[in-house]
Amino acid sequence: MSALLEVLAVGKRFGGIEALSGVSFTIARGEIYGLIGPNGAGKTTFFNLLTGVYRADSGSFRFDGKPLNVKAPHQVAAAGIARTFQNIRLFANMSALENVMVGRHVRTRAGIFGAILRSAATRAEEAAIHARAWALLDYVGLAARGNEVAHNLSYGDQRRLEIARALATEPKLLALDEPVAGMNATETATLRTLLERIQGDGTTILLIEHDMKLVMGLCDRILVLDYGRKIAEGTPALVRSDAAVIEAYLGGELA
């Protein structure tokens, strides 16, 4: 399997605190890669570095065979990385369909003059955006809720809508920040099926998650961070039996 994302000795400091120190790993194409660690381990910092919210002090990223030089967050989506947010950030007052349509922005072109003149090309593009958005809503199981306002959707549906919106950007890597946080068992199971399906359709997934059952059952490989350092990496079975990991978690959740 070839590498999709290569993380090369990435480090980030906040004042005197080293949030992330020289972390390196590789995510292969087509896998579900888990990123876990106790609170404050640097998971979210890493996520923010990858998605251009912060800039790394040291190290670099290579994505899809090219160096990933992100100067602004919006360039990340163009490069092929889509993300969801830990605390859901939908366009709350727009309909579910419109949310997904916004996701098509980065893969479409119509500008201001196209919109005003409504040329044949623009109309065709609009129709395509519409069709694709409906298809994606159907894909995540929200076809019946397309015209509902996003913030009226149930919590689980909002999570899935966020994933549909992210998928609309045609990502090569889908980065999910605690997608099942706050979900009940049924919703988690549904989401797990969805993630497996997304992987099956060829999208690589980076998963930050606290739900150990989900991470251990779903991920192909897992990276464990603790105090900004990589303490273990490998298959769920390997990570589960790693002494450093058990110590970091005090044997709690992993036992």
């Binding site: 998605t51 602004a72 967050p73 919006h74 360039q75 990340v76 989506a77 163009a78 889509a82 993300r83 947010f85 950030r89 939908l90 366009f91 709350a92 007052n93 727009m94 419109e98 349509m101 916004v102 996701g103 098509r104 922005h105 980065v106 479409t108 119509a110 500008g111 201001i112 196209g114 919109a115 005003i116 409504r118 623009t122 593009e125 609009e126 955006i129 919106r165 609309a168 950007t169």
Partner: peptide, 27 residues
């Protein structure tokens, strides 16, 4: 026409949530 266009949706998106709009690749 502007309202119901790609740009119009992008305007609406940044009004609703600028961070999320950026994550969607909106400059």
């Amino acid at each position: 026409r502007l309202e119901n266009s790609r740009i119009g949706r992008a305007w609406q998106a940044i009004r609703e949530d600028e961070v999320a709009a950026q994550a969607m690749g909106i400059n």
